[in-house]
Nucleic acid binder design. Structure first.
Length: 267
DNA sequence: ATCAGCACCTGTTGGC
DNA sequence: TGCCAACAGGTGCTGA
């Protein structure tokens, strides 16, 4: 479910809600929610939250002890704050605070993972340069794309190279840059590369302004949906007329993911 | 290096 | 109405 704009929205919303709160205990309701490489969550007792940030699609909860708790929402994860005794549907893990509230992680499909680490970095998390990083410039983007035969859309989705882009925004950025998803990445012209990088930034930033896309069930830290789904040009619009040229939007499968594009606008 | 296929899970939706 | 297959904002592993 959540990609960079949704995770960023959650981080911003969550930060003021959990800052400075002290953890009384972690309640684990589905064991596999805790990453096998995690420091045991019992050690969270007495620690407190300093801030909430984002690395790629990971939420990074900075703790007083200097450690970091990372949360990956995968498809259906949700993080919300509630009273300790509130029943949260599909709750898999809860950080109960000393003040009687809890930070609840709910996840219908159980794909989400939480991990407590001494030190975080994009390297430890296995992700590449953040899609909104200033250092992702033409040169850096060029070296990622260069000589690759893989379809450009698959490259955008590869978290080890560029972190944060998921299926919605990969489709949308390619539409905006007028590039077909199957084009081998290495065969894009310099002009197309710069159009794509600009489109990617623009789409992600505008999605953050809209507080993300709620296509199905995404909600932010306050339980509110985003608005960007109203502005999507291709994602989920198979058969509907292109907003630019009225040609029906096509759906193909690429790398096992639904892929949408306008056969007239995108070359 | 790359890629298809499958695994992990559950809920929703659309077709017959 | 009911059943079943297809599909879902993600990622990791295996084997060709």
């Amino acid at each position: 479910m959540p990609e960079l704009p949704e995770v960023e929205t959650i981080a911003r919303g969550l930060d003021p809600l959990v800052r400075r709160r002290t953890i009384a205990k972690a309640e684990i309701l589905w064991e596999r929610t805790v990453d096998a490489r995690s420091i045991p969550l019992e050690t969270l007792r007495g620690d407190s939250i300093e801030s909430v940030g984002r690395i790629g699609k990971f939420l990074a909860i900075g703790l007083r002890s200097g450690r970091t708790l990372t949360v990956h929402l995968r498809m259906t994860g949700r993080l919300t704050v509630a009273k300790k005794d509130t029943h949260v549907p599909y709750e898999r893990l809860a950080l109960v605070f000393e003040d009687g509230d809890k930070l609840s992680f709910a996840d219908a499909r159980k794909f989400g993972r939480i991990r407590l680490l001494d030190e975080v970095s994009s390297d430890v998390l296995g992700v590449g340069i953040d899609a909104l990083s200033q250092s992702l410039d033409a040169a850096a983007f060029g070296s990622i794309v260069r000589k690759r035969t893989t379809p450009v859309k698959a490259l955008l989705l590869d978290q080890k190279r560029i972190a944060g882009v998921g299926n919605i925004y990969a489709n949308e950025a390619l539409f905006r840059a007028r590039i077909r998803p199957r084009r081998p990445a290495g065969r894009l012209s310099a002009r197309e590369r710069s159009a794509l990088l600009a489109a990617l930034r623009r789409v992600l930033l505008r999605a953050i302004e809209s507080r993300g896309s709620s296509v199905d069930d995404y909600v932010d830290a306050e339980g509110l949906p985003g608005d960007f789904q109203k502005k999507l040009n291709v994602y989920g619009r198979a058969g509907l007329p292109c907003r630019r040229c009225r040609t029906p939007i096509k759906r193909i499968v690429l790398g096992q993911r639904g892929t949408f594009y306008c056969p007239a606008c995108q070359r």
